Simulated assay, not measured.
Amino acid sequence: MIRKKSRREESLDHAELARLLPAPGDPHLSLDRHLLLEEHLMNEIQSTASAPAPSRRPARRVLLIGIPVTAAALAGAIAFTALTSPGGSGPGVATPPPVEAPVVRIEPGSTAQLASTVEHIAAAALTRKTPEPGPGQYIYIKSKVSYLVVSHTDADESKTLVQPLHIREVWNSPDGKQGWLDEPGYQPKGGITLDSNVERSLNAPSYDYLKTLPTDPDVLLKKIYKETEGQGNSPDQEAFATVGDLLREQLAPAKLNAALYRAAAKIPGVVVVEHVKDAAGREGIALAHVDQKSGDRTEWVFDPKTYTYLGSRAVQVKPADDVQPGTVLEYTAVLERAVVDAPKQRPGAQGTDA
């Protein structure tokens, strides 16, 4: 007896399959698993693509939104569980769990003292003794930092999570071609190389590159606007952020430092904010600018007496993306800035590796 195959045995269309199979579940991962999956996907992309040069500075805002995960993504997350521990940012790295972002009272900003404050800051930069790295030496920056992890979770849209405050140390050669980053809990034990042959620019500066920049504030600001055109949420915000990035993990000649401050004062929207604290809890006075699209205010914190740059802070000042006003999205503090003779060497330990 010859059995004929029914039409259903020969082929099944998508609609028929959907009718026959049980309805799929709605897998929902915890926040830790969301972050783990996203980190894995980023690692996979970086390992299979032509890797760009490592960033010479911390990201302005690290944003990972807790999103629903599909069944396919869930399978990938389960497969990845065997490769690393929960919460890790890579094999062998156990990243500390994020914490709820601090909330502060929003201090009003004003232009009333802007000109005089900037002149005090610029004058102090000109008179301050700045070490100059020689051939074979490295610029060392030690900071205490915390950056945004998620702006809100699926379970609580009002909760913003950030990294716990932690130490970050960076070494860079004057030409920017060699470097090292040590950030326990966020990089593999012992740190990672920052060696790179990327062309130096405002977005990837080196000490040697900074020495070539104009020290006339008007000419410098014009160059910044031109080279950052089309980036960021607005030309003014991008110009302000670019200057801030040059202050954070770099060493600049005194004349250029003064020019950067004077150029920043010419950016529309820049104000002075009093009673601002950096990540080390040091109180200072700040030059600040609000990103009108994201609603957060970037603040550069200076010592109110010596006008030394202390660190930076980003505070939400307008409701946006479910982030509540007063939320501190990121904050940093420069603890040490020096010139050393080798990567992984710390000031006071010349001749020995860290």
Rank of each mutant, 00 (worst) to 15 (best):
E330K: 15
P347L: 02
A75P: 00
Q187C: 15
Q46H: 08
L221A: 03
G66L: 03
V145C: 06
N43E: 04
K305L: 00
G109N: 06
V103D: 03
D245G: 15
A280F: 06
V323C: 03
R61L: 13
N197A: 14
T127A: 13
K211L: 13
S201I: 11
D218I: 07
E283P: 07
L194T: 14
T298M: 06
R61P: 01
Y307D: 00
K5E: 03
D154P: 08
A112K: 15
A155M: 05
S158E: 12
D175I: 03
E16G: 04
R346M: 04
Q113N: 15
V62I: 15
D218V: 10
A59W: 01
T327K: 03
S196D: 12
Q137D: 08
G134T: 01
T127E: 15
T212D: 04
L194A: 14
S110C: 14
P135N: 03
T327P: 08
V315R: 04
F80D: 08
D245L: 13
V62S: 14
L12T: 08
A122Q: 02
T212C: 04
R346T: 09
Y207H: 11
K255A: 05
Q187N: 12
E238Q: 15
A342L: 05
P347A: 01
D322G: 04
S173A: 05
V198T: 10
T352K: 15
S151H: 12
K159Y: 10
G90I: 03
V118Y: 06
E10C: 06
R313K: 03
E238D: 14
S11A: 15
V149T: 13
S11P: 10
G348W: 00
E238F: 11
S294P: 06
K305P: 04
D208R: 11
I167E: 05
V104G: 12
D322R: 08
D278N: 15
P343R: 08
D353T: 09
V272F: 09
G90N: 06
L287G: 10
V273R: 14
G87R: 14
A286L: 10
A263E: 02
T212Q: 06
I267T: 00
D321C: 06
K266N: 00
Q345Y: 05
R7D: 02
I106K: 07
D236W: 07
R19A: 06
V219I: 00
T352F: 13
T327F: 05
P235M: 02
P91A: 09
P174D: 04
K211Y: 03
A72L: 00
Y186V: 03
A320E: 13
A204V: 11
I45A: 13
S158R: 12
P268N: 11
E10N: 03
A112M: 13
T306Y: 00
G90Q: 09
A354E: 05
P131I: 00
G191P: 14
S234V: 11
I224S: 14
Q324W: 08
T117M: 02
A333H: 05
G136W: 02
P24R: 01
V198M: 08
N172P: 10
I285E: 07
E119L: 12
F302A: 01
Q113G: 09
T48Q: 14
